[in-house]
């Protein structure tokens, strides 16, 4: 059983984007249960290698780093193309991603990667009942209003993992000490795609979201603010 987890750098150096950390935890649980091998892959600048080391600390086995020069907005299609090119020959039974990244929040990289690899894909997965003997992964994916969509998926498959009750483990000292011996395959963007992958969307600008309500700010000390809130609640007949 070989599992690949796609991870992205979070807001701070060396930090794994929150949802990807949950995806990695999910994979590491399967490693413990089925002796699966868990590799991680990231596409990003030289500094992104830090998230692979972090993943080693948590228990991942091997890393793939696609060194990219893209900055700012990166189309999910471009990222998915890099990941697909690198993952193609790995013969992975399962590929996990977070449900979305913290910064771009597109939720597209996972399902696009699946399509590029020709694999079935389920998003927002909250439970999996991997059964390697049957080559099957029954899953539950989150729907609206607390409902769950239950389906059986044939391996190999791509799952995007929703943050759930399983908290990501902290890197352990023994894993961190062993991390130096683990191998990281470094691939250059140009090796994978001599002709660069072109995005089909471009970022024009970044804006502050429009206010939907007045957002009256209360001033002064805590006591002043408490009094103003009370006055507001009384005026609107809410107390």
């Amino acid at each position: 059983m070989k599992i690949l987890v796609c991870i992205k750098q979070g807001s701070e150096d060396g930090e794994i984007s929150r949802f990807d950390e949950f995806a990695l935890e999910e994979a590491l649980v399967l490693k413990d249960r089925f002796k699966a091998r868990v590799d991680v892959i990231t596409a990003g600048p030289e500094s992104a290698v830090a998230v692979i080391r972090r993943a080693f600390g948590m228990g991942a086995d091997q890393g793939i780093h696609i060194v990219t020069r893209d900055s700012g907005f990166v189309s999910a299609f471009v990222t998915a193309s890099y990941l697909a090119a690198a993952a193609e020959k790995g013969n992975y039974d399962l590929i996990f991603t977070g449900i979305m990244s913290q910064d771009m929040m597109q939720g597209q990289t996972g399902p696009m990667l699946a399509e590029l690899l020709g694999l079935p894909c389920a998003t927002g997965v909250v439970k999996n009942y991997l059964t390697p003997a049957l080559g099957l992964v029954p899953i539950e994916r989150e729907m609206e209003n607390g409902c769950r969509d239950c389906l059986d998926i044939r391996l190999p498959a791509v799952l995007t993992i929703q943050a759930g009750s399983l908290l990501p483990r902290y890197p352990s000292l023994s894993n961190m000490l062993a991390a130096g011996k683990k191998s990281i395959t470094t691939l250059a963007q140009g090796d994978l795609f001599p002709v660069p992958v072109k995005p089909k969307e471009v970022l024009i600008t970044i804006e502050c979201p429009e206010k939907t309500r007045a957002g009256l700010g209360l001033e002064g000390t805590l006591l002043d603010q408490a009094r103003q809130l009370k006055a507001f609640l009384q005026e609107k007949d809410l107390v």
Binding site: M105, E201, E207, P209
Partner: peptide, 19 residues
Amino acid sequence: LLYSRPGMNNTRNMVLRPE
């Protein structure tokens, strides 16, 4: 046409144009 969508933990909107 321009399409706006949330990003950065919902603190910003990213305005995109399709090619």
